[in-house]
Amino acid sequence: MTLTPAPPGTLHSRLAWAITDAWVITCRDLAHWARQPGAVIANTLLFPILIVLMFGYLLGGAMTVPGGGDYRDFLMPGMFAMTMVFGIGATLAAVSADAARGITDRFRSMPMATSAVIAGRAAADMLNSAAALAVLTGCGLMVGWHPHRGATRAVAALALLLLLRFAFVWTGIYLGLTYYRNPEAVTAARTLEFPVGFLGNPFVAISTMPAWLSAIAQWNPLSSTVSAARQLFGDPTGSHPSWITDHAVLMAVAWPLLLIAVFFPLSLHRYRHLSR
């Protein structure tokens, strides 16, 4: 009995082959959710909701937004973006676990399209993040937040958030394939997610920060996406006039594209040369 598959010849059939492979890998993650609904609900859904409630109600009373506006309206775009940041850890953990346990090597020894494993990973993570964003939006609507500038701008804001997540997918894949032998590094990367958020504008307005910190915070790629989302949703922006804040939408496109341009080729290279 020989079932040996023939690797495809033409460009068209190669592409179809790669898409099939990537889809099988994506389905693997979807099957994980079906097998462990509890873990998915806790990690991707409950955690952001908990933070919305904590910051919105517990700490929110002490917060004032410079330039005026409701703190919960200010917070929601920040929370959307933080959910995208938390995705780095999820990608990193999944990628490093597969690499450490030899599953990635099994894939690499199979007649699969080279790009399929990481492309499938990226697709699964994007689906996961889109679902998380949908739940968080629902949560926002329940605490009284809503977009003020129409559906088109709201969709554009969500698209910018997912673009940031897409950039973080490649960051996470690269870090996962680089540090999979070192579980401490993986844990450290995950605990660094919060500081990344606090060194930006998701929770507090940049104008309240000391000068040196505000310089860092406004050039944090996360801040551009948050500012752009606030503008597009019509939420308070915590007025901080500067070049980068004035061009928030442009920078919310530019930063993720830059990250993708750096980490996509690095990820592919790491995958191809995984064995040290």
Binding site: Q36, R101, G102, D105, F107, S109, M110, P111
Partner: peptide, 26 residues
């Protein structure tokens, strides 16, 4: 190839693993 670790997906069932690998062999 069977490496030093059992390189199978721990969350999926045995059958799901084999179907997935079969699909990846097209």
């Amino acid at each position: 190839l069977a490496g030093q670790n059992a390189a199978v997906d721990e969350i999926l069932s045995g059958r799901q693993n084999l179907v997935m690998f079969g699909r990846l062999y097209h």
